[in-house]
Amino acid sequence: YSSPTKPTGNKVISHLLMMEPTPVCAMPDPTTPDSDIKTLMTLCDLLNRELLVVIGWAKHIPGFSALSLVDQMALLQSGWMEALILVVVSRSLSFTEELVFAGNFRLDRAQCRAAGLQDLYTALKHLISKYQQMHLSPEEVVTLKAMVLANSDSGSVENPEAIQQFQDVLHEALQDFETGRHPGDPHRTGKLLMTLPLLRQTANRAVDTFCRLQLEGRVPMHKLFLEMLEAKM
């Protein structure tokens, strides 16, 4: 995951890059002894704070705040996990074995298996490996992150035309960027858009995993995270 070195040539993407939030750190409870439950607690707490960041960040996507409040809610309720997955994916791109949930919180296959996250590990590794092969750039990460909200296929939107326009702006930005950055690969925009089904499938896997953890009642979850999980049930 290289840092952007050249000007993007596209103002929407430059704006998205500028608005990228500071990475969130894991805050394991120092009074709890290390265990699989502690791993899950740390993860759920981290994702709850990351979710808060995603909601704040969404307001800075060009066009998002112009949507009605009802439609902003609908897009976030549908697309929040895909956005979170992209955050984890982008952090994990330069790692071969570990999922990098935060700079100070990385989990390998064995740790995931022990915590009951084996399916999620496998699904995430599959997605990460796809993006590693494509050498996904930071510009593409931020644009895809905005796109997953715009393209979240919520069934309860008030103004589909406004959402279509919101999608079109992001699509045009990505196309414009790829034309300048990858002139030798005219299909790169399409290739990126074709990763969205796998991204959604991975996010659904993650939602299932956290719903199961919630039902098992072994891990306390924050209210915001629960509220957003319930919106997906």
């Binding site: 307001k59 800075h60 309720q77 957003m228 319930e230």
Partner: peptide
């Protein structure tokens, strides 16, 4: 909306529209 009150509150707070 009542059901999703935290998200509703977060979005209502200091929305700054971006116009490029």
């Amino acid at each position: 909306k009542e059901k999703h009150k935290i998200l509703h509150r977060l979005l209502q707070n200091s929305s700054s529209p971006v116009d490029l």
